[in-house]
Amino acid sequence: MRLTVFNGSPRGKQSNTKILMEHFSRGFTENTGNTVEVAYLNQTGETERYVELFKKAEHIILAFPLYTDAMPGIVKHFIEALTPAAGGKENPSIGFVIQSGFPEPIHSRFVARYMEKLAKRLGCPHTGTVIRGGVEGIQVQPPWMTRKLFRSFYRLGVGYAAAGRFNEEIIRKLTPRERMSFGRRLFFRLLNLTGLTNMFWNMKLKENNAFEKRFAHPFKEF
């Protein structure tokens, strides 16, 4: 099987999306002759070439982070460039990976509905949608915190190679509940009182000598 991954993260090769998809690809190519090609949609000068890649692809995964409750601008830019390919009879299959910084899957459900409609519109058989929240920290978290997540993406890859689609059981396990439980919300509130929930941001703000300016509102005229 030949897989083409369109990475829709504005951070491109530095993205969390890339890390998740690397674990997926490791599973997808293991013990098979399968291949993976990756296109980074943040290289907006390559759009024409990417449309050709789309047309020639066998299986596609479009993976992106949630940006203001939808797909990032670069992803919509790419989608619009696909207009001439819409409805093609030989179009590749397509699956989606939507990850967010917010921990709850509820945030990503709406753009997921859009993506599934888009698959129909493009004439691409839909192979499933993976939603995963709480991804923002994976580059700074210690390995024990990410091991299970990376393992799941690896297993998704293995399953995709076997069945040509995402395994629904693993998808469900990646999104155990739509919103945080009462207990977790309570825990978050307590943690918030201690200021611990802001620790990551404060560390970064201090690194950039911007901590004192963190509440700046430079455009206020009222």
Partner: peptide
């Protein structure tokens, strides 16, 4: 296009 750099959140230019 937003590049996801988050300078607008963690500096050097909050906001």
């Amino acid at each position: 296009f937003c590049t996801g750099c988050w300078s607008c959140w963690w500096g050097p230019t909050p906001g």
